[in-house]
Design a protein around this nucleic acid. Structure first.
Lengths: 138, 138
DNA sequence: CGAAATTAGTTGCATAGCGAACTAAATGGA
DNA sequence: TCCATTTAGTTCGCTATGCAACTAATTTCG
């Protein structure tokens, strides 16, 4: 019945990959959501809440609370910018920087395993297509 | 940085389509999750919790609580099977059956709009590919 | 300049989701 | 038969997510 439904198939796949990356990041004490948010800050920070929320395609409410979590874990800091009294710049801590390489390797290892299961070309094509739909809608 | 990441792109798209279908089903007083679960019961019921959870690729815990919600809304009932004292069969109520056609039309209308934005062929191809990855992994 | 509108971020309240621990029923051997 | 194992479903405690309403700072413009 839902063979051709974007919602059904996409949310199903999202749950599946979330479970897989959850196991992968468990040794770090991080959820995939936290791990990816941290990776963005590590790779692209300093970055404001608003930009981070845009980058991850989450609401600013979710962003704010996720940053609370990472800050509690000692992985990011909120630095007041001199330019604008309303906004913060998020910066990674040394503790986070020490994890950077290993986080990237862990995610790459998961990807490699999935590519093996799915087939290299099908994997690449599909991710590209998903990215395309992401860009086209909303 | 995450251009080729399955997790990043899939979860992002899932959030996006969830927001879109949330707006679409709002007039029914249903979340997309509830609406799709109900549609499965309408189309494929009577069905047990276990089969429904498999069909939707959710845990039985989530399934159980989602069914609570639909039951509270008067849209499904849990019928004790005579065969097995542990399990229920989920059946749609008349109230739910009265919504069936309109739910299907609403989802079809959203799909049509998205196909227009994305392009028919790209849409179909991508959903098929997503379905393929869903089947290949885990 | 100063009031109105916009923008950045937080908080309240809700649903969706998972794993783990649990209860109760059914099944499978010895 | 009866105990051990499996299976169906629920409950607990947690994170992720969104919208709406809020505060505070900044910007716009008459």
């Amino acid at each position: 019945m839902f063979e051709h439904c974007l919602y059904f198939n996409t949310t199903s796949l999202a749950r599946k990959v979330d479970r897989i990356w959850t196991r992968a990041f468990k040794p770090f004490g991080l959820t995939p959501s936290q791990a990816f948010m941290l990776r963005v800050v590590l790779a692209e920070g300093p970055i404001t809440h608003t930009h981070l929320a845009d980058r991850m395609n989450i609401s600013k409410a979710t962003c704010s609370r996720s940053v609370d979590g990472l800050q509690k874990l000692g992985l990011v800091d909120r630095k007041q910018t001199s330019a604008d009294g309303r906004s913060f710049e998020l910066v990674s801590t040394e503790k986070a920087q020490a994890l950077n390489a290993e986080l990237n390797e862990t995610s790459a290892a998961v990807t490699k395993k999935l590519k093996h299961l799915v087939g290299n070309e099908a994997f690449e094509t599909t991710v590209t297509n998903i990215k395309g739909i992401n860009a086209a809608i909303d």
